[in-house]
């Protein structure tokens, strides 16, 4: 195969593959920047995927489905927010139970829709004018879903909001030093709630992308660890929205390239590769920055209780 064509096709596929990861990882970056770990990404994506599919199937409109997907993810995250922020229970276990509950519930809800294709799935688009560009056109601007571009846009918006607005400053401060924020007369908990809910919304949309666009159908193993990979991506990108995009594309490119080895490797071993790659990416991140996790919000994973250090 011509090298140019290979590169173009790989990047185009990588974008499509990375899209759900981008949505979910962006959401997690926002939540974790406020100091709340949410290990429920996998569950929220599953809830988003099944709800989105059910609504799109029933109404015949993928956009209603997408809205429902985001809402479902958000509802899931609300559960986590209540347990981890209001009740100040262990955020790790709370997120984990959200994943288990979300996977179980989605399988239960989705029983009626297993194996039924979506009659009117999300369509791919070609970007006018830009699609004509040599190389870049077929690479980035042909046959992608709107949600892919929206994810890139969301990353930029998240970056602007987090790093260039007062609200973003407050959110990051809550993640770094909630005591100081509290002392400044601002509420810690509403900020954390908002961040976690946005995280849930984005994870739900990521799930919706899977069941409405990428593979317009529903099945129990649909998310299959993508939520966990998104968590790893947030770390790999060191909690920075723009780096999430770069890291997501890198992940996507690696997975896509690996799948080109299909003729050489048995399919089971190929399916294993994203998970192996995720571990390697985490090891690489740790190796590059030594034992000190700079970039990690200082108060990450710690519930805030006034009067406590």
């Amino acid at each position: 195969m011509d090298v140019d064509v290979l590169v173009v096709a790989t990047i185009a596929r990588a974008l499509a593959f990375a899209t759900p990861l981008l949505w979910a990882a962006l959401g997690e970056v926002i939540a974790e920047r406020s100091g709340v770990v949410n290990l429920g990404v996998e569950g929220m994506m599953a809830l988003g995927a099944v709800t989105g599919f059910a609504v799109a199937f029933t109404t015949g409109d993928v956009w209603w489905g997408l809205a429902a997907a985001g809402l479902a993810g958000m509802l899931g995250s609300l559960l986590h927010a209540f347990v981890a922020i209001t009740l100040r229970a262990d955020a790790y276990v709370s997120g984990l139970s959200l994943t288990m509950l979300g996977l179980g519930l989605s399988a239960l809800i989705g029983r009626a829709w297993v194996g039924r294709p979506l009659p009117d799935p999300m369509r791919t688009i070609d970007v006018p004018w830009l699609r004509e560009l040599p190389l870049l056109g077929p690479m980035l601007f042909q046959g992608q879903y709107v949600l892919t571009y929206a994810a890139l846009l969301a990353a930029v918006v998240a970056w602007v909001l987090l790093f260039h607005t007062r609200g973003g400053l407050v959110l990051r401060s809550v993640g770094e030093n909630p005591t100081a924020v509290d002392a400044a007369g601002l509420h810690v908990r509403p900020v954390r709630y908002a961040a976690v809910l946005i995280g849930g919304l984005l994870a739900g949309i990521g799930g919706g992308y899977l069941s409405l666009a990428y593979r317009p159908s529903w099945g129990e193993g649909m998310v299959n660890g993508l939520g966990w990979i998104a968590l790893a991506l947030a770390i790999f990108a060191m909690w920075h929205p723009l780096r999430v995009v770069l890291a997501g594309l890198l992940f996507g490119a690696c997975f896509t390239l690996a799948f080109r080895l299909q003729t050489v490797f048995p399919p089971e071993l190929l399916t294993m590769l994203p998970y192996v790659f995720t571990v390697l990416a985490l090891v690489f991140t740790a190796w590059r920055r030594g034992r000190h996790a700079f970039g990690a919000p200082e108060a990450l994973g710690r519930p805030y209780l006034r009067g406590e250090r």
Partner: peptide, 21 residues
């Protein structure tokens, strides 16, 4: 029964300064 709090728990695992990768 609903509004309660506990000591900070589990801070060491996910992303504390020395527990992250």
């Amino acid at each position: 029964a609903a509004a309660t709090a506990g000591a900070p728990a589990g801070g060491a695992a996910h992303a504390s300064p020395d527990g992250e990768g």
